[in-house]
């Protein structure tokens, strides 16, 4: 058993070395396919960041009636957190905080400053800024709770109806981006697997006659199949190592450009955080697809 295993490994290494042209071509195609899948992984990271940033920009605000005590506002906040799922963030903004924000934002605008002076005092109301998972239904549910439950008497207005259209549009765009991403991933992955399968098939087609000879001299199926499968694994492993290095290098080199386009997003940070996903996917598409393709192709020739 061990002797046979050693022999099969030896045959595979010899075949790999002696068919350099085929080996290089197979590795090259595997690299293209793995980089395609890795590119999709990067694309997914970018779109996830982008959609989450867009969703974080959407919120609804519940304005409380003038003079509502801070404890009451915080009580409402706690109750919403307890009763409503998928709340990402609730921020309490007091009257004084709202005034301070306004002054900071419009410090260079004398017209607004004068208007504020004429109104006199602090015209702002205490409020809660609520962010959910971005689903319009979720926002509607929060708005309904605020307007119909016991604490509705504390609330002056909720701006959901003004923002409803925008929320729906943004939700639809982010959902579409995700759907397109998933669709693209599936199509390109299938395409990639087919290309690799055919490349491995072409590589093994050269040995079709030899497989027949091996059968004639009484070699067992695994003695015939083994070297081809191990050769497929060697192609896949080399392609995986190269792709992992290329992915890391690209993430490092393009990180500053990605950061300029998407402020706050770090491509190298994404790669380092998700390196194990890259390893798993690249290993699967390298060694996995290489080995499975070899197995299937040789099996076909063994049945002839």
């Amino acid at each position: 058993m061990l002797t046979n295993l050693k022999r099969i490994l030896g045959f595979a290494v010899n075949d790999f070395n002696r068919n350099k042209g085929i080996s290089v071509a197979a590795i090259f195609v595997l690299i293209v396919m793995i980089m395609l899948v890795s590119g999709l992984l990067f694309f997914r990271g970018i779109t996830s960041y982008l959609t989450s940033e867009i969703k974080n920009k959407i919120d609804i605000t519940a304005y409380f009636v003038d003079g509502t005590a801070e404890a009451d506002v915080l009580g409402v906040r706690d109750e919403i957190i307890e009763t409503t799922p998928n709340i990402k963030n609730i921020e309490y903004v007091s009257e004084s905080d709202a005034l301070e924000d306004f002054n900071k934002k419009h410090q260079n605008n004398p017209v607004l400053a004068k208007a504020l002076q004429e109104v006199g005092g602090n015209p702002f109301l205490p409020s809660l800024n609520i962010t959910t998972n971005g689903d319009p239904l979720q926002y509607e549910q929060v708005a309904n709770i605020l307007q119909t439950s016991d604490f509705s008497k504390l609330i002056d207005k909720v701006d959901f109806s003004q923002k409803e259209d925008t929320i729906k549009k943004i939700y639809s765009i982010t959902t579409n981006i995700n759907s397109v991403g998933i669709f693209l991933s599936i199509v390109l992955t299938i395409l990639g697997i087919m290309v690799v399968f055919n490349t491995i098939k072409l590589a093994i087609d050269n040995s079709k006659e030899e497989i027949g000879t091996m059968r004639v001299v009484g070699a067992s199926d695994w003695f015939i199949r083994g070297p081809f499968i191990i050769c497929g694994a060697i192609y896949g492993f080399i392609a995986f190592v190269l792709c992992f290095l290329i992915s890391g290098a690209l993430a490092y080199l393009l990180s500053s450009y990605a950061g300029a386009l998407l402020p706050g997003f770090s491509l190298i940070g994404y790669f380092l955080t998700n390196w194990w996903i890259f390893v798993l996917i690249q290993l699967f598409f390298g060694i996995g697809v290489g080995v499975i393709s070899s197995f299937v192709v040789v099996k076909k020739y063994l049945e002839i």
Binding site: R7, E210, M214, V217, G218, A219, F223
Partner: peptide, 17 residues
């Protein structure tokens, strides 16, 4: 014959089998 194997390896193969 097995084209990627040497003369020695071609003969040895059937013994290895």
């Amino acid at each position: 014959l097995l084209s990627a194997k040497t003369v020695y390896e071609n003969v040895a193969y059937v013994m290895q089998v």
